[in-house]
Design a protein around this nucleic acid. Structure first.
Lengths: 345, 345
DNA sequence: CTGAAAGCGCTAACAA
DNA sequence: TTGTTAGCGCTTTCAG
């Protein structure tokens, strides 16, 4: 059992040639039923397992597609991956995952590794650090499908699947205004990635549309994490112009914000808090967290569909599409002033 | 840019042979500095990217190792993977992840896919459904390293890295007893995987050692999920012999238990609740959840170390080790009766 | 220090 | 319907 059986072993055992074996195994039509059966049986008997490397080398197709995400620990990305796998498995494509851990260096490495592994295409959501995008251009140069989702960069001329993030920022803000909050702050992050800018613009637009001023001190730029949330909330609540509601860049950051607010006895919804992403835990923390649903499953499905379309075209980048999904507010207690009144009574 | 540059292109451009190029690129010692430099430069100029498929086919080593886990959404598994990657990257090994989603069918598929992709080894934590283990035997037959971690099956003669799960069950129970709880129930799952049995045995032993009876009705066998937790807690609290504390098979299940208890106004620590795994959210739910720390990072490191050891031996399965890690209790509010008293005062 | 050539396991013309 | 044969891109003896 030391060395693997190959189609040569099968051929030899059956006294036929490798081409016949190859054809029998790959369902080639012009093969007699007898031969096919004999081959399949012998393959099983010899415990044959095909070497995909060899066939990929020959055919130029690995049927593997690479997905690069910042981290699989975010429920949002995990769900997307799941849906991509789901949408692709019927077509015989497998997914391999590469985590950038929010570092460009890892991201570059990821692209290289996947390309060297000869994947048939790549889907990616960029790391927060990513500014230079030349590593992605390499994929395009090789004329392999690249699809960017959620965290995209518009300088890259590739199909994208995103949320309407301007609208997401807008409705998050509007939701708070509708709940009666008046001084709304925003803890977010700064970089090249479109979605965070769009959300910020949506936030500003909503404020303006409803007659509220945009206060520079109410916008905190940092990272996105529980720690950053705590820090941002602390800074805001120590300032002379304290907000009465905080929008957090994602649910983890919102969690940090809530932690901090609880410590200083400003537990939401006293101070309103809303996040982005609808993480698994968001419904279970106290108070449970209002958030913006980013439709992970739909996004994953669209990625899969888009990939299949690209791979089946002569040129993958013809008829490029940019799909934009509609965000929704998930209203929970952290922005529900009525709960606060009830609790205080 | 349509077709990729190969070492042949480099060789032609430099008027040397492919063997020289290959050697120059792979850091072979007996190569003149001049040639090496020229090759490297030309490689960059021609935008060369090696085809790992070809080199793997030739050398029989892909330097890729496959990790099969039930789901990356569990913080525990995500952390382990992270640490495996970390411990392996210096040796040039890359990790690809395959999720079984707790289904044997996917698991079998995963093993096959990884084997066909010619990975150099596999690490796996079994799905809850897995009973038959022949798909894993296949890896051993091919004489490739297989390491089982956390959810192992002792019928497979391979190295394992586990927690001392008997002890885990024991200390979880003892912790509750120490806190003053007297009627301790256990919501868990039933199957072939060793750890869940061990935990149950530890639970029983702790009860017995401290003079408490083992009550059959206090042991609920179901799945592990938020839903199963709700269901288990409901069943327990409706019974005539209500427990005053519940051990849940994992933190997700514990979350469901807490949800249910809150609804029927038995919010922990009134009824004590403890989970397993120390998920990211556990510290943030209310009341925050006591749990058993499974030392994910240590487990990941040991996996990496073990793999390196196996791959460097003549025969991977010589000197097999079974590493057992020590669990620890993370004490939080959900089992802290003093908090309850304070709150009620 | 470099070249020639065989071959990893499989596919796919082209023949028969 | 099956066989022959030439590679896919790379590594690696064996010569020189």
């Amino acid at each position: 059992m030391k060395k693997k059986t190959t189609i040569y072993d099968i051929a030899k055992a059956l006294n036929i040639t490798v081409s016949t074996v190859s054809r029998a195994l790959s369902g080639f039509p012009a093969i007699s039923d007898t031969t096919r059966k004999a081959v399949v049986e012998m393959a099983k008997k010899l415990n044959y397992s095909p070497n995909k490397l060899a066939s990929a080398l020959k055919s130029g197709k690995t049927h593997i597609i690479g997905v690069i995400v910042p981290s699989v620990q975010a429920h949002f990305f995990a769900s997307i991956i799941h849906c991509i796998e789901d949408g692709l498995k019927d077509s015989g494509y497998r997914v391999i995952i590469y985590q950038s851990n929010e570092s460009v260096e890892n991201e570059i490495n990821g692209v290289r590794t996947l390309l060297e592994a000869q994947v048939d295409g790549i889907m990616a959501s960029m790391s927060l650090e990513t500014k230079n995008i030349s590593h992605f251009s390499e994929i395009i140069k090789q004329n392999k499908p690249l699809i960017l989702f959620d965290r995209v960069n518009t300088d890259l001329k590739v199909p994208t699947i995103t949320l309407d993030d301007f609208k997401a920022g807008y409705i998050a803000t509007k939701h708070l205004i509708d709940q009666g909050y008046q001084k709304i702050a925003f803890v977010t992050t700064v970089h090249q990635i479109k979605i965070f800018n769009d959300r910020l613009e949506g936030y500003k637009a909503a404020l303006t549309d409803h007659g509220f001023p945009v206060v520079e001190d109410h916008i905190i730029f940092g990272g996105l994490s529980i720690k950053d949330g705590r820090f941002g909330a602390g800074k805001l609540m120590r300032s002379s112009n304290k907000p009465d509601a905080i929008i957090a860049g994602d649910d983890f950051t919102a969690l940090g914000v809530i932690k901090k607010l609880k410590e200083i006895d400003e537990t939401p919804p006293k101070i309103g808090v809303i996040g982005f992403a609808n993480e698994a835990f968001s419904a279970y923390i106290t108070p449970n967290l209002s958030t913006i649903d980013q439709h992970a499953s739909q996004m994953g499905q669209e990625c899969a569909k888009m990939f299949l379309k690209m791979i089946n075209q002569e040129s993958p980048y013809a008829n490029m599409e940019h799909i934009v999904l509609d965000p929704g507010v998930v209203e929970r207690d952290s922005t529900n002033k009525k709960v606060a009144i009830k609790t205080e009574a």
